[in-house]
Amino acid sequence: MPEVWARLEDVSIRYGPKVVMQNLSLDIVDGAITCIIGLSGAGKSTILRLLNGLKRPDAGRVFVRGQEISTLRERDLISIRQTIGFSFQFAALFDSLTIGENVALPLREHTKMSGEEIDKLVSETLESVGLGNVESRYPSELSGGMVKRAGFARAVISNPQCVLYDEPTTGLDPIITHILTNTIKKLRDRLNGTAVVVSHDLGSIYMMADYVAMLFEGAIIAYGTVDELRRSPNPIVQQFLQGSEVGPIPI
């Protein structure tokens, strides 16, 4: 049995009258890349927010490395969050800071490293995601793909145990998508940690996923390796993978 990094146990979430999750349970395997797929608005990004305490479940429990985080106070979540990197869908870099300052921020705030050490590590981390000499530029001066990679760099600079990626390749051309997918794999190998990726991009998922979970109507309806998912007899899974309009998924 592979070791579990995080566990969602009977989690329910509703936004107003809309039920987003209903008794959802999911294990995130330690050291693996787990991809979460599902229709738009199915609650995939909410799963990422549950895993680092940005969102609390209305019912159910969330465990990270065996510790229940769903009941922790905000101040107690800080130490947990320092072990989890989060790459946001639109990178969420701070507009008023340069790329270098953005990437350095967690180190400046949480470590006693000297300015020179931080600058060196920032350069190395940006190089590792394929960005050189952009430290002094502002997010608004970079392309979408470069901003996403800068977001990756900020997420991984503290050597987190796990990195959460929210739609890392959405809206990017196939070449940049390929590069970013490889970057996620390289970063996982470099950190020797866990990654959870929310994506619609099946090509990327087939390239990088160790495990895939499909979310549909508030529950995980399929879970397994890429091959297992492809062979799934579930007509909902098959319709989603084939991108077909015809099938049990209501359009």
């Binding site: 979540l77 969050r81 989060f86 969420a92 870099l93 701070f94 967690p106």
Partner: peptide
């Protein structure tokens, strides 16, 4: 709106 507040929180910053 641009998730920068969540980004701060996710970095363990208040």
């Amino acid at each position: 709106v641009t998730e920068q507040i969540e980004a701060l929180q996710s970095l363990g910053l208040s």
